[in-house]
Amino acid sequence: MSVLRPTTIDEAVAVLSAQPEAIPIAGGTDLMVHWPHRLELHEKTFVDLSRLTALRGLRWQDGDLVMGALTTYWDVLLDEQIGRRFPLLHRAARQVGAVQIQTRGTWAGNVGNGSPAADGVAVLMAYDAMVELTSVRGVDVVPLRDFYTGYKISHRTPDQLITAIRLPGIPYRTQIFEKVGARKAQAISKIGVAMVEAPGGWVVVANSMAPTIRRCRAVEAVLNSGHPISSPEALHDTILQDVHPIDDLRSTGEYRVRVMARLLYHDLREHIAAFS
């Protein structure tokens, strides 16, 4: 294993440009899970980002929230303004691992790792986050909703580093995040769903329901249409237009669809008149 330790963004992107197979790491929490058993990882080159002070911390800019790529879940939990403006970030952060993970794991790492079960990504996507990618070629900004193209595949090219995540300062009305795990804490999501009512209509994001975290456009259309929904089952076909969850070690595809429908139905009944 070799570890490169750049101290500036310029150094870091130069490293990635020269060695695109190198893996950037921040908190290292995803890496450590597999470390004892993925021996092939031990041969890789890692780019340790922890010295890039420019990527630390979060700030408010023109009403938007800008999180540097080293922002941890814990940083967000300590920020009261985020709790008021983007409460789902708090709710998701509290449910990621335990405090030890929350203090090391980063939002950008969650995005970069690309797990379809990532709690952090679901709420970021619900708030229409933009991902800032930096390379020696310049800066790209990609909407998170379009970021993933397949299981652990994204628009990030190997020479690009996620440098920031930006959340537009939009006022939201209803904001709901549901995480269904196999226990009440320290569990990987069997189903996650983030729902926000933005000025332009409902945004619904599902995790652990598809190879990627995914915006559920068909569900959003039904919620926005005022189409009457009288039971959870009435949502099954719509959900299946958006996602095709599988059976795996953690749950079954059938359970995932049915429970997502039940969460939508029961949680939204008091917010959407057409749900009866």
Binding site: A182, R183, K184, A185, Q186, A187, I188, R250
Partner: peptide, 11 residues
């Protein structure tokens, strides 16, 4: 232990 689930104190 990520997939064989035992209760935590929260459960």
């Amino acid at each position: 232990l990520t997939n064989y689930i035992i209760p935590t104190s929260s459960d």
